[in-house]
Design a protein around this nucleic acid. Structure first.
Lengths: 250, 250
DNA sequence: CGGGAGGTTGATGAACCTCAAACAATGTGG
DNA sequence: CCACATTGTTTGAGGTTCATCAACCTCCCG
């Protein structure tokens, strides 16, 4: 896999698949026009492709249009920590655009399409569209909130609670985005990904997931995970669940 | 302790203790005037005071002027995770200002003074001062970067490496702010704080810190920690150290 | 003088990691 | 078509790391 992204030029924001979704706020006409003006085109990555690599210069900002990915960092000896997952509507590369160099990597979990913006036009955005600028800050703050939750989970929850929290979170995020609507869909993960998210070894992750499956909370499918009992997961994790009101995206 | 904050009205930005520091970018005259216009006054908290509590409505933004504090979250049964430390120049309450309700708590580690801004004037800032707006996003992205590092540490480093990383980080952040200039200063922590940051029990934290001390890397002082060998800590943690160019603050 | 907060230490067991092996599913080249 | 490699999952054995419990100690303060 790990294919380079394929570039698709000149697609308009009018047919954006995100815009109809309930979760996202609607744009005013001039904002939409401006975002359309920002947009360079789209990129498509195959499953397993590197969207960004740590240390790279970052000329572009991406908004995910479809597909799953994950952000991660590694230590020198190869130990990997997954920081968060990226899903449709998420903005990626903002950190890099502000500081010049990416401090983390991003990899596609499934085939993924992103919308491409040049970072050179960011200052124009800040000057001309204060509400979009506010949205950017809001988006950064949302990411921060997710990281806070994640840190709490890894630092203070047991392996079983952690796994329950992770799967419940991914399930709810995906549900809000209507990714599972119309029948079925699995969370496209390997147990290695789960392990690297929870800070556990793959062996212990396997045994932990088995416990969740034995309790009827999840089912491990071919290349992924199905949720069987979301309330059970939430209870086990001691978590209230996701509350996301209408939110901005760019 | 845990005293309520004492409010001090009408202090100007001209005498701001942060402005002379090398780390911070300088303001243009009109920006400075605007920030001064934003500023309501200052608040002083005693050591151990609650600056913010999770779930609170958040009317104000604070910029730390002096002192140390920490951000944390807790699970229902009381387990606590420290997410990050706040030091002079850090903006706190941004998350809450954007989403209405604080998702984490902040407590003072030492006596702390903060600068108070009303969140109601944020929209004015975004409309009139795009560069300050950009700075706000930048600041949010910086916090995100620190959380990424933290997550990597807790998820994938051993207890000893984690402790080394934490102390090295705090030491370097403090050094950049010239907090230890002119002789001596310790990082004002208890071992309970270290434990809640690293996701360890207090007993094991104690044994881990003892190992660092036995190796001559740190010295545990009365109510705090002195760094003896910063390079040793960095090597042990497998970390390059902090690289912070001039950065914005509000 | 007593009490509380913070630090230190040892014993014991649980949680988790590493090593090792095996299995199923899938794809590849001959 | 089969032999073979690859990727992902599963399981057991044995060892390390870490948590919990229980003391005890020091320092500081009322």
């Amino acid at each position: 896999m790990a294919t380079e992204g394929k570039f698709i030029k000149g697609t308009s924001c009018n047919g954006c698949p995100l815009r109809p979704l309930q979760v996202f706020r609607s744009f005013k006409a001039d904002e939409l026009a401006f975002v359309n003006h920002l947009k360079l085109g789209e990129l498509a990555f195959g499953s397993g492709a590197a969207v960004f690599l740590e240390g790279e210069e970052c000329e572009h900002l991406f908004t995910v249009l479809s597909g799953w990915g994950f952000r991660y960092k590694t230590l020198d000896d190869g130990r990997r920590q997954i920081l968060n997952y990226v899903m449709p509507g998420d903005l990626i590369g903002l950190q890099g655009s502000l500081t010049g160099e990416m401090q983390h990597s991003i990899e596609a979990l499934s085939p993924i399409r992103v919308c491409v913006f040049p970072r050179s036009k960011l200052s124009e955005l800040y000057r001309e569209y204060p509400e979009l600028a506010y949205d950017l800050t809001w988006i950064a703050a949302r990411e921060e909130r997710m990281l806070d939750e994640n840190l709490l989970s890894i630092g203070r929850r047991s392996a079983l609670e952690r796994a329950a929290y992770l799967i419940a979170l991914l399930y709810q995020r995906a549900t809000t985005l209507e990714l599972f609507s119309g029948g079925w869909g699995s969370i496209p993960l390997t147990q290695q990904h789960v392990a690297d998210t929870l800070g556990l070894s793959i062996v212990h992750t396997n045994k932990t997931l088995r416990k969740l499956a034995d309790r009827g909370l999840i089912r491990w499918a071919e290349k992924g995970c199905d949720v069987r009992d979301i309330d059970g997961l939430l209870t086990l994790a001691g978590w209230d669940g996701l509350s996301e009101p209408k939110r901005p995206f760019i």
